[in-house]
Design a binder for these strands. Structure first.
Lengths: 200, 200
DNA sequence: GTGCAATTTTGACACTGTCAAGATAGGTTT
DNA sequence: AAACCTATCTTGACAGTGTCAAAATTGCAC
């Protein structure tokens, strides 16, 4: 009623949809998000969302994309810290896992099957993921120069494998295979030892 | 018509369902497996499968369970080989990834969200998974004694983290995030270096 | 052959994603 | 101010899903 943005009948349905969807997903999991219920909770008719997102896949892509931007800025924020590189890396690993567990449903959208295999990742989602991955690889290269990560291979390879390790740990918790979060810190520490042994 | 087993109208619907389901899943992905289509391809009415499996979840659990048994016997087969422990471990890592990529849909059922989070893992599935995990941890302990894997932590922790690493790599390929299978062998080699550096 | 129990089918319900066609209403042009 | 256009939203509809309840079928033991 008073914003500057074009705001027809609803106000800003696009944003409302994203917000509500994120909430539902967070609280009840992505599989219990239906376009119809979503429309209902936002207060519009079943098919109204389809004028803002091509389909369900597109909506989820948008959510995932936001996740990538968050994760990327998390990385940049940490990189900017004035601390020994080793400490920053350790901190990043902890932060990565923490983010993954805290925003587990978003994390799943970002990297999970739903979008990348069962669904169709949008171009902008692919771009966002590629960009954060590149940021990561660049940082890996720096970390290699600073002898934090092993030099036994290219930045790409080291980046791929170390990330895979973090990702694997995250997934085991997210999917409910590892449950005991007491153990998480312990595992993370052990994982860091694996990743940082510069002889490897 | 001629088997010993009790075989009423169909023959052995239970087995037929599992086989067809496995095939459909392998070729088209788990999301395009519907109970109705499955019943149709097997040649029975929509609800016939429900007398053999409580629900779709139960059917998928059965498939996953089979996967665990396969994986476990794969482990035992390798363990029995008369070779240096390091070589056997390397071989196992390669075999693990190969299995995961070859039977990617089964692998996803075994460890993915579908059953463990979105669904309800059956008791026998939980038992099977626990059992293979235990077999893994036991082997890790041996590998630690043989200085193949690091002694910096308990068998459980080392087992958890090394498995997480393998799992992460597998997932990235399965979910279509890493696609270039040319690189796989390279990554696996690098991963092995990470995992085996006995100083960590 | 009769009866029982395992097995299968038919019918039904509530839910899903999404398309097509119509209604509405805000902003722009005249 | 009126007319128009276009973005937005709604209603109706269709095909598909998992699965329950009740009825039908069938093989086996007696």
């Amino acid at each position: 009623m008073s914003t500057l943005k074009t705001q027809y009948h609803h106000g800003d349905l696009t944003k409302s949809l994203l917000q509500s969807a994120a909430l539902i997903i967070k609280e009840q999991g992505v599989e219990s998000l239906s376009m119809r219920k979503l429309a209902d909770t936002v207060g519009v008719s079943r098919t109204a969302p389809y004028h803002h997102f091509k389909d369900k896949n597109a909506l989820l892509c948008a959510l995932a994309e936001k996740g990538f931007h968050e994760q990327e800025s998390m990385l940049f924020a940490l990189k900017a810290e004035q601390k020994p590189a080793t400490d920053v890396f350790k901190q990043y690993v902890h932060a990565y896992l923490e983010y993954a567990l805290q925003h587990n449903e978003t994390y799943d959208l970002m990297y999970g099957r739903t979008l990348w295999k069962a669904g169709t990742p949008s171009d902008s989602l692919k771009a966002a993921s590629k960009q954060t991955f590149k940021a990561w690889i660049d940082w890996v290269e720096e970390l290699q120069e600073q002898k934090v990560l092993p030099n036994s291979n290219t930045p790409l390879r080291i980046g791929q494998t170390t990330w895979a390790s973090l990702h694997g740990l995250a997934r085991l918790f997210i999917d409910g295979i590892y449950l005991d979060k007491e153990d998480l810190a312990d595992m993370v520490e052990q994982m860091i030892k694996n990743l940082c042994s510069t002889s490897a």
